[in-house]
Design a binder for these strands. Structure first.
Length: 227
DNA sequence: CCAGACGTTGTT
DNA sequence: GTCTGG
DNA sequence: CCAGACGTTGTT
DNA sequence: GTCTGG
């Protein structure tokens, strides 16, 4: 699963974005109101990267997807993750999967290890081994009623490195696959399903952190310190 | 036909 | 909006 | 994801 | 137990 992210340093991502496109995209980057920090929970306005006919838009969206047809936006509280295996079937996600895919940059994310029969929970921090950020696969939607854009993070089976901690993890898209994932002219999703797999365990660094991170009001460097 | 749901995870 | 259940 | 609330009336 | 807020 993926219910808490670290995005304390947006710079490397934003710099890479300008390199990725070979023209000036500064007008298409709107990150000023995006949530940044070491401990960002669902319902925050997290930064997303998507495209419309190959024109990028990098902007914050409410984490917790509110389908365009929703009567009550509170439905977003339960849509913080989307299971990759059933994206084409679920009413809340299938249209977004065909037309509105996005990537969510994070410096890292957290998973909690639970111990059966106890209330004990051990949080872990997960980051890229050799890069300052990861791109998580997401979907987005627009709720016309109040013009709210919202997003969700797609999950898959945990890889071998994460399995001891948790059985699910976010889908992580390698930078070289971003072009394909974000292409909104692709509406036949078959060619995207190979991307919806667990990332190689070698790509990740994982270590335990303090329960300090449990409370979302804690939002400083202590959240990502190894214990 | 209308009404009501539309989600994931983990645990039992 | 679209599907499921009654 | 976790933490914290979960209620109404009337009075200050 | 379940929902809301962060």
């Amino acid at each position: 699963m993926c219910g808490r992210i670290d995005f304390h340093d947006p710079k490397p991502f934003l710099e890479d974005m300008q390199k990725y496109y070979d023209w000036d995209i500064s007008d298409y980057i709107r990150y000023e109101t995006a949530a940044t920090g070491y401990n960002i929970p669902p319902s925050s306005d997290i930064l997303t990267w998507h495209e419309h006919h190959h024109i990028p838009l990098i902007e914050p969206m409410h984490w917790g997807l509110i389908p365009f047809w929703a009567k009550d936006p509170a439905i977003g509280n339960r849509m913080i993750n989307a299971k990759s295996e059933t994206l084409t079937q679920k009413p809340a996600f299938r249209t977004a999967f065909r037309h509105r895919r996005c990537l969510i940059p994070v410096n890292g994310f957290y998973e909690w290890q639970k111990f059966p029969g106890t209330k004990q929970k051990q949080p872990y921090y997960i980051k890229a081994k050799e890069k300052p950020y990861l791109l998580l696969a997401g979907l987005w939607d627009r709720w016309e009623k109040e013009n709210i854009k919202s997003c969700t993070i797609i999950t898959t089976d945990a890889n071998e490195a994460l399995k001891p901690i948790h059985n699910r993890m976010p889908v992580i898209i390698p930078p070289e696959e971003a072009r394909l994932w974000l292409d909104d002219e692709i509406t036949q999703t078959d060619i995207l399903t190979p991307l919806l797999k667990p990332i190689s365990p070698e790509a990740l660094e994982i270590y335990p952190v303090s329960e300090y991170v449990n409370s979302p009001v804690h939002n400083d460097r202590n959240c990502i310190e190894r214990v």
